[in-house]
Structures are given as structure tokens and as C-alpha cells.
């Protein structure tokens, strides 16, 4: 089956397509997240190294922090497509992605804090991963603040796309500086992969939950993009016909 991408880059044609896709993504999201969490809670060992049952928050925490990062990249991608091809729909996608991304970064932060409370005995620790989630949330907040401060949608779209792009360019530098605040010590130190030593069935639970979160993100992003399309195309003929049809 071949899709005609250019046809669907017009908001008018994308609106009904997205409407059809939303329920599919919702079903996939519920099934996958349900399976991932079920697997994580009942099919994995009760103890992970020195941590007891409570380590299981990992299934939510890791999936959401992955999503926080991936959605940022996706947001930059849509912004870049919009800047290069000047397609309105891609800017709308970027805008719709930002809120879900911020939501995921916030979940990662909260679940990380809860995890920290039970395992380290403190809500907050300046652990690189938690710090990075916090900074990611700041970047999303900056993006959303700029988007909502500009009244002209065209300028808002382009300006926030540039901001997101600049953010993405600096993120690796921020990541390095957070992970390695003292370059004298970590010049020889290699970042240890967090996957090492993780049992494969724990990994399975994490991956499936993450996939479920992806589907959830697609579903809500498409729902939000439908709203943005209606909001921006309010004066067009097809939206008027849509209203009359109902």
C-alpha cells in the first residue's frame, strides 16, 4: 500500500485520517502498556540487586524518561520539516508534541523522585539522570512559553522551531556537563550502560511499556493536532462544511 504523503500534508486531508488513527493508537496503547506493566509486576523477580519490590517503578520511570527525550527529538524534527518545506501541518505536529513531551518529562521527574525517596531516602538527589529530566522539562517549558507568547501563529511556529533546534544543538553539551561536572575525573571514566546486568525479562517489560507509551503519545498528539487544525482553519470552507454535516 502506498500512501500519498503530500496529499496528507494538507490539514484538510489529514484531519479525517488522524480521526481514524486515534482509536487504533488508543487500543494499542492500552494493550501494550497493560501487558508491559503486567509483565513488570508479576513476571519479574521480586528483588533487583539490593532493591526490593519498589524497584518496579522503573517500568514507568524509564519509559517516561525515554519518551521525554524522544518526543523532544520528534518535536525538533517536525519543526525542521516545517522550516525547510514550509508546511503548516508539521508546525502543528511540533506544537502538539511539545505538551505531551513536557508531560512525559514531568512523569519521569515525579516517578524518579518517588523512587529516590524509597531507595535513597530522599525525594531529590542531584543524580545526572534526574537532573537531565529536570533540564529537559525546562526546555519544554521554554518552548511552550515562547509558543504561547506570540499571537501570530506563523511567527510562533517558526520561532519555536528555531528555539527547539538550538536547544537540541546544546543538549549534548548540557548532557556532558551534567554527567561530568569535573572533567579531570571523567576523562578516563566511561559512562556505564544502564542496561548492563539487567535481566532480559525486566528489559522486556520496560521495552513493551515504552512502546505502549509511544502509542499513547501518538494518540494524544493526533487528538491535539486535530484541535489545532480546527482552531487555525476556522475560517475555511471545509471546516464550515464539517460543522454543517453534523
Amino acid at each position: 500500500m502506498s500512501l500519498n504523503w503530500f496529499k496528507y500534508s494538507a490539514p484538510m486531508n489529514f484531519y479525517p485520517l488522524a480521526g481514524k488513527l486515534v482509536p487504533i493508537f488508543w487500543i494499542l496503547a492500552i494493550v501494550l502498556t497493560g501487558f508491559g506493566l503486567y509483565w513488570g509486576f508479576f513476571k519479574t523477580p521480586d528483588v533487583l540487586s539490593d532493591q526490593k519490590q519498589y524497584y518496579r517503578i522503573i517500568f514507568v520511570h524509564v519509559a517516561s524518561s525515554w519518551m521525554g527525550m524522544w518526543l523532544y527529538v520528534m518535536m525538533v524534527f517536525w519543526g525542521l520539516v516545517g522550516l525547510v518545506l514550509n508546511t503548516r501541518l508539521s508546525f502543528m505536529m511540533a506544537k502538539a508534541t511539545s505538551v505531551t513531551g513536557a508531560f512525559m518529562a514531568a512523569i519521569a521527574l515525579v516517578s524518579g523522585a518517588v523512587w529516590g525517596k524509597v531507595s535513597w531516602g530522599t525525594w531529590w538527589d542531584w543524580d545526572p539522570r534526574l537532573t537531565m529530566s529536570l533540564i529537559l522539562l525546562f526546555l519544554y517549558i521554554g518552548y511552550i512559553a515562547l509558543q504561547s507568547a506570540i499571537d501570530d501563529p506563523r511567527r510562533a511556529d517558526k520561532a519555536s522551531a528555531v528555539l527547539a533546534l538550538v536547544g537540541l544543538a546544546i543538549v549534548p553539551v548540557i548532557y556532558y556537563s551534567v554527567n561530568c561536572p569535573n572533567p579531570n575525573e571523567c576523562a578516563s571514566l566511561h559512562q556505564e550502560s544502564s542496561f548492563k546486568g539487567i535481566e532480559s525479562n525486566i528489559l522486556l517489560g520496560m521495552l513493551v511499556t515504552a512502546l505502549g507509551f509511544w502509542m499513547y503519545s501518538f494518540a494524544v498528539i493526533l487528538m491535539r493536532v486535530r484541535n489545532i487544525i480546527l482552531e487555525r482553519e476556522i475560517n475555511t470552507k471545509w471546516v464550515a462544511e464539517l460543522q454543517n454535516g453534523r
Partner: peptide, 10 residues
């Protein structure tokens, strides 16, 4: 400041 301060972190 909301946009730029996070970028000043490094």
C-alpha cells in the same frame, strides 16, 4: 530568561 537560562548550564 525562561528560554535561555537552561542553555547557560554548561
Amino acid at each position: 530568561s525562561l528560554l535561555i537560562l537552561p542553555l547557560y548550564i554548561p
